[in-house]
Design a protein around this nucleic acid. Structure first.
Lengths: 153, 153
DNA sequence: GCAAAATAGTTGACATTGTCCACTATTTGA
DNA sequence: TCAAATAGTGGACAATGTCAACTATTTTGC
């Protein structure tokens, strides 16, 4: 097993450990009454106010008809509003309502609380170490991605 | 924002980056015709030959009736066999068939290939760095878990 | 040893989640 | 200006997951 194979094995092993640890598996978002997909749609609009369904469908990689229904449901619950775009009347700009913003922020709070609970035993030093290690992983993987895109594009 | 809050934020940020990077979202396992759940069941039996459904249900945290049907389906496709346990006749030991082992190994090969492709630009040195960083993250998070379980149990 | 509780697994009914295809309306582009 | 592309909707359906009831065992407490 050479270095590269070891690293691949290690990434797989890490993933198997990391995902269940953060309870990222399963369908309900942080034990809320909303599915992970429903929550992510709200999150997407929260972060990209005024985006349209096509944007969400492509970034989340989900079916547009499915998304259409999720958006409809969010609208009916008063979490977001749709406004016909002025530049393209096929497209509707999505905006969270105050209620939707509240709900989304509550998701974020709960997610923070959950992770905060997991990290509770860390002290200043180990916090630093964790963040540093996460930075390293992120940098290395981003480098990989950039180099590959650089070659292809 | 204190150290702890920074770390929590950093973990969330990392997760948002890491999961899509490895294409861990979505329902099909590595573009196969099997769902992630179906594949994970095979994987579980592959790693724990002779385990029973209860073991899988608890480690995967899925409904036993759902699992019962997945196992039935795997059996009907010839991927595994069930044998009544000699020590507990309520329980059935699960064993992959040769075909099931083949399929599972193929999943692992494909997963390795996929991750290998992502890691392709790494060299010996950066491989080491990545593995070391993953080890650090794993250790720190495991410590958190152990300390918390230590307090509770 | 025995009744009650717990456990392994199955099944039916159902709810949720996601996919596929056809369709309208609009915009883009040759 | 007309064909192709894009945004979004809706119907039909398939896949995925949940809940409760049930049988057959095993374990537990007495």
């Amino acid at each position: 097993m050479d270095e590269k194979e070891k690293a691949v094995y290690r990434v797989r092993e890490f993933t198997r450990f990391y995902m269940p640890m953060l309870e990222l598996l399963g369908n309900h978002y942080l034990g809320s009454e909303y599915s992970a997909t429903e929550a992510r749609v709200l999150f997407e609009v929260y972060e990209h106010d005024g985006c349209n369904a096509a944007h969400i469908a492509s970034t989340m990689n989900i079916d547009k008809s499915y998304l259409s229904r999720i958006i409809k449901s969010h609208e009916s619950k008063g979490y977001l509003v749709r406004m016909v775009s002025k530049t393209d009347s096929r497209s509707r700009e999505l905006h969270l309502t105050e209620l939707g913003v509240e709900l989304t922020r509550d998701f974020i709070r709960r997610s923070n609380a959950q992770i905060g609970e997991i990290l509770a035993p860390l002290n200043g030093e180990t916090c630093e170490a964790l963040m540093h290690a996460l930075d390293t992983v992120t940098e290395l993987l981003k480098d990989c991605r950039n180099k590959q895109n650089g070659l292809q594009e």
